[in-house]
Amino acid sequence: MKHHDPHAGLHSEQGALAGEHPGRAANPVVKVRDLAWLEFEKPDLERAELFALAFGFVTASRTESELQLRGSDSGAPCVVIRQGPRSRLVGSAFQAADRKDVLRLAEVTGRTVTTPPESLGGVGVDLVDPSGARVRVVADTHQLPAQPAQQPLSWNIGHELTRVNATQRPPRAPAKVQRLGHVVLQSTRYVETLDWYLQHLGLIVSDFLYYPGQRERGPVMSFIRCDLGSTPTDHHTLAMVLGPSNRYVHSAYQVADLDAMAAGGEFLREHGYQRSWGIGRHTQGSQIFDYWRDPDGFLVEHFSDGDMFDNTLEPGWAPMTASGLAQWGPPATRDFLGMTPGRESLQELRAIGRALRDDDTEFDLHRLIGLLKVPAS
Protein backbone atom coordinates (compact mmCIF):
# COMPACT_ATOMS: atom_id res chain seq x y z
CA MET A 1 0.00 0.00 0.00
CA LYS A 2 1.40 3.38 -1.00
CA HIS A 3 2.06 5.70 1.94
CA HIS A 4 0.30 9.07 1.78
CA ASP A 5 2.19 12.07 3.10
CA PRO A 6 -0.44 14.36 4.71
CA HIS A 7 1.90 17.33 4.28
CA ALA A 8 2.39 16.94 0.53
CA GLY A 9 1.38 20.11 -1.26
CA LEU A 10 0.81 22.14 1.90
CA HIS A 11 3.87 24.36 1.85
CA SER A 12 4.12 28.02 0.99
CA GLU A 13 5.78 27.50 -2.39
CA GLN A 14 2.27 27.17 -3.90
CA GLY A 15 1.36 30.55 -5.30
CA ALA A 16 -1.84 32.37 -6.11
CA LEU A 17 -4.08 31.64 -9.07
CA ALA A 18 -5.18 34.37 -11.45
CA GLY A 19 -7.54 36.83 -9.79
CA GLU A 20 -6.84 35.77 -6.21
CA HIS A 21 -6.06 38.20 -3.40
CA PRO A 22 -2.64 39.85 -4.00
CA GLY A 23 -1.77 39.89 -0.29
CA ARG A 24 -0.64 43.53 -0.19
CA ALA A 25 -1.94 47.03 -0.79
CA ALA A 26 -0.70 49.02 -3.77
CA ASN A 27 -0.22 52.24 -1.82
CA PRO A 28 -0.50 51.79 1.96
CA VAL A 29 -0.78 54.77 4.28
CA VAL A 30 2.29 53.77 6.33
CA LYS A 31 4.43 50.68 6.87
CA VAL A 32 4.75 49.69 10.52
CA ARG A 33 8.01 48.08 11.64
CA ASP A 34 6.87 45.59 14.28
CA LEU A 35 4.36 44.65 16.91
CA ALA A 36 5.17 46.84 19.93
CA TRP A 37 3.09 45.33 22.74
CA LEU A 38 -0.27 43.78 23.60
CA GLU A 39 -2.67 45.25 26.16
CA PHE A 40 -4.87 42.96 28.26
CA GLU A 41 -7.27 43.28 31.16
CA LYS A 42 -7.35 40.58 33.83
CA PRO A 43 -9.19 40.37 37.15
CA ASP A 44 -6.28 38.98 39.19
CA LEU A 45 -2.90 40.63 38.55
CA GLU A 46 -1.09 38.53 41.16
CA ARG A 47 -2.19 35.30 39.51
CA ALA A 48 -1.32 36.70 36.08
CA GLU A 49 2.17 37.65 37.26
CA LEU A 50 2.84 34.22 38.78
CA PHE A 51 2.05 32.55 35.47
CA ALA A 52 4.02 35.15 33.51
CA LEU A 53 7.16 34.53 35.57
CA ALA A 54 6.78 30.76 35.11
CA PHE A 55 6.29 31.30 31.37
CA GLY A 56 9.55 33.26 31.17
CA PHE A 57 8.67 36.95 31.34
CA VAL A 58 10.36 39.49 33.61
CA THR A 59 8.28 42.06 35.47
CA ALA A 60 9.19 45.49 34.09
CA SER A 61 6.89 47.39 36.44
CA ARG A 62 4.02 46.67 38.81
CA THR A 63 1.42 48.86 40.47
CA GLU A 64 -1.88 48.00 42.14
CA SER A 65 -3.70 48.36 38.81
CA GLU A 66 -1.10 47.60 36.11
CA LEU A 67 1.51 44.97 35.30
CA GLN A 68 4.12 45.37 32.54
CA LEU A 69 5.99 42.29 31.32
CA ARG A 70 9.14 42.28 29.24
CA GLY A 71 11.52 39.90 27.46
CA SER A 72 15.30 40.04 27.44
CA ASP A 73 15.50 42.08 24.19
CA SER A 74 15.63 45.86 24.34
CA GLY A 75 12.45 47.77 23.54
CA ALA A 76 9.02 48.34 25.00
CA PRO A 77 7.37 45.83 27.36
CA CYS A 78 5.87 42.86 25.50
CA VAL A 79 2.64 42.85 27.47
CA VAL A 80 0.70 45.41 29.51
CA ILE A 81 -1.98 43.98 31.82
CA ARG A 82 -4.41 46.24 33.65
CA GLN A 83 -6.91 45.38 36.33
CA GLY A 84 -10.33 44.67 34.85
CA PRO A 85 -13.55 42.78 35.57
CA ARG A 86 -12.79 39.99 33.08
CA SER A 87 -9.91 38.61 31.06
CA ARG A 88 -9.77 40.14 27.58
CA LEU A 89 -7.44 41.53 24.94
CA VAL A 90 -7.87 45.31 24.96
CA GLY A 91 -5.79 45.97 21.85
CA SER A 92 -2.53 45.65 19.94
CA ALA A 93 0.15 48.32 19.56
CA PHE A 94 2.34 48.50 16.46
CA GLN A 95 5.67 50.33 16.16
CA ALA A 96 5.72 53.01 13.47
CA ALA A 97 8.92 53.85 11.62
CA ASP A 98 8.87 57.38 13.08
CA ARG A 99 6.64 60.12 14.48
CA LYS A 100 5.73 61.35 10.99
CA ASP A 101 3.92 58.08 10.26
CA VAL A 102 1.81 58.47 13.40
CA LEU A 103 0.85 61.98 12.30
CA ARG A 104 0.05 60.76 8.77
CA LEU A 105 -2.19 57.96 10.07
CA ALA A 106 -4.01 60.40 12.33
CA GLU A 107 -4.57 62.79 9.42
CA VAL A 108 -5.82 60.12 7.01
CA THR A 109 -8.16 58.50 9.54
CA GLY A 110 -9.39 61.69 11.19
CA ARG A 111 -8.05 60.62 14.57
CA THR A 112 -6.25 62.64 17.21
CA VAL A 113 -2.60 62.04 18.11
CA THR A 114 -2.46 60.86 21.72
CA THR A 115 0.20 60.42 24.38
CA PRO A 116 0.53 56.85 25.71
CA PRO A 117 0.89 56.42 29.48
CA GLU A 118 4.09 57.94 30.89
CA SER A 119 5.50 54.51 31.64
CA LEU A 120 5.45 53.77 27.89
CA GLY A 121 6.14 57.25 26.48
CA GLY A 122 6.17 58.52 22.92
CA VAL A 123 3.19 59.42 20.75
CA GLY A 124 0.42 57.32 19.30
CA VAL A 125 -2.82 57.19 17.40
CA ASP A 126 -5.68 54.89 18.40
CA LEU A 127 -7.59 53.25 15.55
CA VAL A 128 -10.36 50.65 15.35
CA ASP A 129 -10.28 47.91 12.72
CA PRO A 130 -13.49 46.74 10.95
CA SER A 131 -13.89 43.93 13.51
CA GLY A 132 -13.95 46.44 16.35
CA ALA A 133 -10.47 45.66 17.67
CA ARG A 134 -8.42 48.57 19.00
CA VAL A 135 -5.15 49.17 17.15
CA ARG A 136 -2.62 51.62 18.56
CA VAL A 137 0.29 52.81 16.37
CA VAL A 138 3.14 54.36 18.36
CA ALA A 139 6.53 56.00 17.88
CA ASP A 140 9.36 57.26 20.11
CA THR A 141 8.34 55.06 23.04
CA HIS A 142 10.68 54.41 25.96
CA GLN A 143 13.19 51.66 25.23
CA LEU A 144 14.05 49.27 28.04
CA PRO A 145 17.72 48.17 27.90
CA ALA A 146 18.50 44.60 26.91
CA GLN A 147 18.94 42.06 29.70
CA PRO A 148 21.19 38.98 29.72
CA ALA A 149 19.57 36.46 27.37
CA GLN A 150 19.29 32.71 27.71
CA GLN A 151 22.04 31.27 25.51
CA PRO A 152 21.23 28.50 23.01
CA LEU A 153 22.98 25.20 23.68
CA SER A 154 25.87 24.08 21.53
CA TRP A 155 24.85 21.01 19.53
CA ASN A 156 26.81 18.16 17.98
CA ILE A 157 25.00 17.94 14.63
CA GLY A 158 25.77 14.85 12.57
CA HIS A 159 29.55 14.46 12.47
CA GLU A 160 30.20 18.11 13.27
CA LEU A 161 31.50 18.30 16.84
CA THR A 162 31.11 21.52 18.78
CA ARG A 163 31.01 19.94 22.26
CA VAL A 164 33.68 17.49 23.49
CA ASN A 165 34.21 16.19 27.04
CA ALA A 166 31.15 18.15 28.16
CA THR A 167 27.53 17.22 28.85
CA GLN A 168 24.18 18.80 28.07
CA ARG A 169 22.28 19.79 31.20
CA PRO A 170 19.63 22.39 30.30
CA PRO A 171 18.15 23.69 33.55
CA ARG A 172 14.52 22.89 34.29
CA ALA A 173 13.63 26.54 34.64
CA PRO A 174 11.37 29.06 32.86
CA ALA A 175 12.24 29.51 29.19
CA LYS A 176 13.36 33.14 29.09
CA VAL A 177 11.13 35.13 26.75
CA GLN A 178 13.21 37.20 24.32
CA ARG A 179 10.46 39.20 22.60
CA LEU A 180 6.87 39.36 21.44
CA GLY A 181 6.49 37.61 18.08
CA HIS A 182 2.89 37.72 16.89
CA VAL A 183 -0.78 37.85 17.77
CA VAL A 184 -3.61 35.87 16.16
CA LEU A 185 -7.12 37.35 15.91
CA GLN A 186 -10.43 35.89 14.72
CA SER A 187 -12.83 38.08 12.75
CA THR A 188 -16.36 37.72 11.42
CA ARG A 189 -15.39 40.20 8.65
CA TYR A 190 -12.09 38.61 7.73
CA VAL A 191 -11.41 39.94 4.21
CA GLU A 192 -12.56 43.47 5.06
CA THR A 193 -10.39 43.51 8.19
CA LEU A 194 -7.40 41.98 6.39
CA ASP A 195 -7.60 44.67 3.69
CA TRP A 196 -7.76 47.34 6.40
CA TYR A 197 -4.45 46.19 7.94
CA LEU A 198 -2.75 45.95 4.54
CA GLN A 199 -3.93 49.44 3.54
CA HIS A 200 -3.42 51.30 6.82
CA LEU A 201 -0.35 49.57 8.30
CA GLY A 202 1.39 48.37 5.14
CA LEU A 203 1.48 44.72 6.23
CA ILE A 204 1.88 42.02 3.57
CA VAL A 205 0.65 38.42 3.48
CA SER A 206 3.10 35.52 3.72
CA ASP A 207 0.57 32.67 3.44
CA PHE A 208 -3.15 32.25 2.80
CA LEU A 209 -5.21 29.26 3.90
CA TYR A 210 -8.60 28.29 2.47
CA TYR A 211 -11.17 25.70 3.50
CA PRO A 212 -10.76 22.38 1.64
CA GLY A 213 -12.90 22.45 -1.48
CA GLN A 214 -13.63 26.18 -1.13
CA ARG A 215 -10.59 27.85 -2.69
CA GLU A 216 -12.81 29.61 -5.22
CA ARG A 217 -14.54 31.39 -2.31
CA GLY A 218 -11.26 32.92 -1.19
CA PRO A 219 -9.01 32.58 1.86
CA VAL A 220 -10.17 32.20 5.46
CA MET A 221 -6.81 32.73 7.18
CA SER A 222 -3.73 34.81 6.51
CA PHE A 223 -0.26 35.02 8.08
CA ILE A 224 0.85 38.64 7.74
CA ARG A 225 4.30 40.21 8.10
CA CYS A 226 5.76 43.69 8.21
CA ASP A 227 7.21 45.11 5.01
CA LEU A 228 10.78 46.17 5.79
CA GLY A 229 11.93 46.04 2.18
CA SER A 230 15.05 43.92 1.78
CA THR A 231 15.38 43.41 5.56
CA PRO A 232 13.98 40.00 6.55
CA THR A 233 11.20 40.01 9.13
CA ASP A 234 9.05 37.43 10.92
CA HIS A 235 6.88 35.25 8.68
CA HIS A 236 3.93 36.69 10.59
CA THR A 237 3.52 39.50 13.06
CA LEU A 238 -0.26 39.27 12.83
CA ALA A 239 -2.41 36.32 11.78
CA MET A 240 -6.11 36.61 11.04
CA VAL A 241 -8.73 33.89 10.71
CA LEU A 242 -12.40 33.94 9.75
CA GLY A 243 -14.77 32.79 12.48
CA PRO A 244 -18.20 33.28 14.04
CA SER A 245 -16.95 35.81 16.63
CA ASN A 246 -14.40 38.61 16.94
CA ARG A 247 -11.86 37.45 19.53
CA TYR A 248 -8.27 36.90 20.60
CA VAL A 249 -6.91 33.48 19.57
CA HIS A 250 -3.34 33.45 20.87
CA SER A 251 -0.09 35.39 21.14
CA ALA A 252 3.47 34.09 20.70
CA TYR A 253 6.80 34.85 22.35
CA GLN A 254 10.27 33.87 21.14
CA VAL A 255 12.65 31.80 23.27
CA ALA A 256 16.26 30.76 22.61
CA ASP A 257 15.94 27.22 21.29
CA LEU A 258 14.23 23.85 21.54
CA ASP A 259 15.94 22.90 24.81
CA ALA A 260 14.86 26.14 26.48
CA MET A 261 11.31 25.50 25.29
CA ALA A 262 11.23 21.84 26.39
CA ALA A 263 12.85 22.41 29.79
CA GLY A 264 10.66 25.48 30.32
CA GLY A 265 7.63 23.37 29.45
CA GLU A 266 8.58 20.84 32.11
CA PHE A 267 8.83 23.70 34.60
CA LEU A 268 5.35 24.91 33.66
CA ARG A 269 3.91 21.39 33.86
CA GLU A 270 5.44 20.78 37.28
CA HIS A 271 3.86 23.99 38.52
CA GLY A 272 0.40 22.84 37.48
CA TYR A 273 -0.12 24.76 34.25
CA GLN A 274 -1.90 23.25 31.24
CA ARG A 275 -0.17 22.52 27.95
CA SER A 276 -2.62 22.97 25.08
CA TRP A 277 -0.52 21.54 22.23
CA GLY A 278 3.13 20.82 21.53
CA ILE A 279 5.98 20.47 21.09
CA GLY A 280 6.02 20.49 17.26
CA ARG A 281 7.07 22.41 14.16
CA HIS A 282 4.52 24.45 12.23
CA THR A 283 4.10 24.34 8.46
CA GLN A 284 3.33 27.99 7.70
CA GLY A 285 6.15 29.91 9.40
CA SER A 286 8.15 26.78 10.32
CA GLN A 287 8.34 27.74 14.01
CA ILE A 288 9.00 25.14 16.67
CA PHE A 289 6.01 25.71 18.98
CA ASP A 290 4.59 24.91 22.39
CA TYR A 291 1.15 26.22 23.45
CA TRP A 292 -0.01 26.80 27.03
CA ARG A 293 -3.15 28.06 28.77
CA ASP A 294 -2.77 30.85 31.29
CA PRO A 295 -4.93 30.70 34.48
CA ASP A 296 -7.72 32.62 32.69
CA GLY A 297 -7.75 30.17 29.78
CA PHE A 298 -5.92 32.44 27.31
CA LEU A 299 -3.65 30.68 24.83
CA VAL A 300 0.04 31.70 24.71
CA GLU A 301 2.88 30.20 22.67
CA HIS A 302 6.59 29.70 23.08
CA PHE A 303 8.29 29.63 19.65
CA SER A 304 11.77 29.40 18.18
CA ASP A 305 13.43 29.10 14.74
CA GLY A 306 10.75 30.86 12.70
CA ASP A 307 10.96 31.78 9.01
CA MET A 308 12.18 35.25 8.09
CA PHE A 309 11.02 36.76 4.76
CA ASP A 310 11.89 39.98 2.92
CA ASN A 311 9.33 41.78 0.76
CA THR A 312 10.11 39.86 -2.46
CA LEU A 313 8.21 36.69 -1.51
CA GLU A 314 4.64 36.46 -2.77
CA PRO A 315 1.93 34.77 -0.65
CA GLY A 316 1.66 31.00 -0.57
CA TRP A 317 -1.73 29.27 -0.75
CA ALA A 318 -2.71 26.02 1.01
CA PRO A 319 -5.83 24.29 2.33
CA MET A 320 -6.57 24.64 6.04
CA THR A 321 -6.32 21.18 7.57
CA ALA A 322 -5.62 19.89 11.07
CA SER A 323 -2.75 17.72 9.82
CA GLY A 324 -1.31 20.66 7.89
CA LEU A 325 -0.87 22.76 11.02
CA ALA A 326 2.40 21.00 11.84
CA GLN A 327 5.21 19.26 9.96
CA TRP A 328 5.92 17.11 13.01
CA GLY A 329 4.66 16.81 16.55
CA PRO A 330 1.57 15.38 18.23
CA PRO A 331 -1.77 15.80 16.45
CA ALA A 332 -3.49 19.12 17.10
CA THR A 333 -5.44 18.70 20.32
CA ARG A 334 -9.14 19.28 20.82
CA ASP A 335 -8.19 22.03 23.26
CA PHE A 336 -6.08 23.87 20.69
CA LEU A 337 -8.80 23.50 18.06
CA GLY A 338 -11.40 24.90 20.50
CA MET A 339 -13.37 21.64 20.64
CA THR A 340 -12.97 20.79 24.34
CA PRO A 341 -16.33 21.09 26.11
CA GLY A 342 -16.32 24.17 28.30
CA ARG A 343 -17.05 27.87 28.46
CA GLU A 344 -14.98 28.81 25.39
CA SER A 345 -16.50 26.18 23.09
CA LEU A 346 -20.00 27.00 24.35
CA GLN A 347 -19.46 30.70 23.61
CA GLU A 348 -18.28 29.80 20.11
CA LEU A 349 -21.34 27.61 19.50
CA ARG A 350 -23.59 30.50 20.48
CA ALA A 351 -21.56 32.80 18.24
CA ILE A 352 -22.11 30.45 15.30
CA GLY A 353 -25.87 30.77 15.73
CA ARG A 354 -25.65 34.57 15.86
CA ALA A 355 -23.31 34.76 12.86
CA LEU A 356 -25.58 32.61 10.69
CA ARG A 357 -28.46 34.98 11.42
CA ASP A 358 -26.39 38.10 10.77
CA ASP A 359 -26.09 39.34 7.19
CA ASP A 360 -23.20 41.64 8.15
CA THR A 361 -20.63 38.84 8.57
CA GLU A 362 -18.58 36.76 6.14
CA PHE A 363 -19.25 33.61 8.18
CA ASP A 364 -22.17 31.81 6.51
CA LEU A 365 -23.44 28.25 6.23
CA HIS A 366 -20.92 27.29 3.52
CA ARG A 367 -18.08 28.60 5.68
CA LEU A 368 -19.42 26.66 8.67
CA ILE A 369 -19.41 23.46 6.61
CA GLY A 370 -15.81 24.19 5.59
CA LEU A 371 -14.79 24.85 9.19
CA LEU A 372 -16.35 21.59 10.40
CA LYS A 373 -14.20 19.66 7.93
CA VAL A 374 -10.93 21.08 9.27
CA PRO A 375 -10.47 18.96 12.45
CA ALA A 376 -10.83 15.69 10.52
CA SER A 377 -8.82 16.73 7.46
Score class of each variant (00 low, 15 high):
Leu371Gly: 00
Arg33Tyr: 04
Leu10Gln: 14
Trp292Gln: 03
Asn27Trp: 11
Glu314Val: 06
Pro116Gln: 09
Gly306Ser: 09
Pro295Trp: 08
Arg86Ala: 15
Ser154Gly: 02
Pro22Leu: 12
Pro232Gln: 03
Ile352Met: 09
Thr114Asn: 12
Ser206Tyr: 11
Glu344Asp: 15
Trp292Glu: 03
Asp257His: 02
Asp360Gly: 06
Pro232His: 06
Pro219Phe: 03
Ala48Phe: 06
Val102His: 04
Met320Leu: 15
Phe40Glu: 03
Ala149Leu: 04
Val138Tyr: 03
Pro148Tyr: 14
Arg33Lys: 15
Phe57Leu: 05
Asp98Gln: 09
Leu153His: 11
Pro219Thr: 07
Asp140Phe: 09
Gln254Ser: 07
Ser251Val: 01
Ser345Tyr: 05
His4Lys: 13
Ala54Pro: 00
Phe57Ile: 03
Leu38Ile: 11
Arg293Ser: 12
Val30Gly: 00
Ala25Glu: 11
Lys100Phe: 10
Asp73Ile: 00
Pro232Met: 07
Thr59His: 07
Glu41Ser: 15
Val90Ile: 15
Gly278Met: 04
His4Trp: 10
Trp328Val: 03
Gly278Leu: 08
Glu13Phe: 12
Leu45Val: 09
Ala262Thr: 12
Arg99Asn: 06
Asp310Arg: 07
Lys42Arg: 15
Leu368Asn: 08
Val184Met: 08
Ala351Ser: 13
Val128Leu: 05
Ala36Asp: 12
His21Thr: 03
Lys31Phe: 02
Glu20Met: 06
Arg86Pro: 00
Gln284Ile: 13
Leu69Trp: 09
Asp101Gln: 15
Gly243Pro: 03
Ser206Asp: 13
Tyr248Cys: 01
Pro145Asn: 07
Arg62Trp: 08
Gly121Arg: 11
Ser377Val: 01
Leu53His: 04
Pro43Cys: 13
Asp359His: 13
Glu66Ala: 15
Thr283Lys: 00
Phe303Lys: 00
Tyr197Asp: 04
Ser345Asn: 09
His271Asn: 15
Glu66Phe: 01
Arg86Gln: 14
Ser12Gly: 13
Arg88Asp: 11
Ser276Lys: 10
Asp257Val: 05
Tyr291Lys: 08
Met261Ser: 06
Ser286Tyr: 13
Ala76Trp: 05
Lys42Tyr: 07
Gly124Asn: 05
Val138Cys: 09
Ser304Glu: 04
Val123Tyr: 02
Ala332Met: 15
Leu153Cys: 02
Ala376Gln: 13
Val164Ser: 07
Tyr273Asp: 05
Pro331Lys: 12
Arg136Asp: 02
Thr237Val: 14
Val102Glu: 05
Glu66Tyr: 02
Pro152Leu: 06
His250Tyr: 15
His7Gly: 01
Ala8Cys: 03
Asp358Ser: 11
Asp294Glu: 13
Pro244Ile: 04
Arg136Cys: 07
